[in-house]
Amino acid sequence: MWFVRFVTSSIGKKLVMAATGLLLFLFLLTHAAGNATIFMSSAVFQDYADELHSHPLIVLVFSSALLAVLLVHIGVGLYLFYENRAVSNNRYVVSKRVVKNSLASATMPYTGLFVLLFLVIHIFGFTFSPKDVPISSTVRDMLSNFFYALFYITAFIALTFHLSHGLWSMLQTFGVNHPRYELFIARLSLVLPLFFFLIFGGIAFYFMTGLGANY
């Protein structure tokens, strides 16, 4: 069948990574927007969380779809990682990367896996947190733990790296590469990940340093 042929082809796999990556990126945008309410006040944040959870069907459909997308992204990513390792392992006695700033692209699987680890911990910590405690309290309590917050910040650094290559790579895979927009895309794939880092990392920093102790 054409679809199977497509997704098993090298470009197909890449396109799957790009498409799922794009969806995850869009999710991150909404998540960042929601979380940004933390900076306003605990009440606003709590209202946002309550409003969200007052539509269980939407949340269920949305999170199942998100999970599916995530699993596909991880699954295909790991498969590519495995395939590419088989080709590239110990090819040369001396090997050198010529591209500058190749760190992000070279570490995609690792930053990806680290973000996955973070996700598991994050979901267990927040999504499955006790329902009777307000979410704003949970956030404050958990992130006040210095090492827990530090782990969060580390994960966001990994995410920033992952996205800085991922965003550009996603556009390239979709065929978006034109001299006129080259600089814009290059800046975008630096600015957007940093934007996420500022919001997510800022939250962790806010509580970690005790700034949000009275939240």
Binding site: R5, S9, S10, I11, K13, K14, L80, E83, N84, V87, S88, R97, V98, V99, S102, S105, A106, M108, H165, W168, S169, Q172, T173
Partner: peptide, 22 residues
Amino acid sequence: MVAQMDSEGFGNCTNARECEAV
């Protein structure tokens, strides 16, 4: 051409840009 390329045992592109650089 993509089908043939895949069947020859070449790896998958991950947009690492090394090809262009060399």
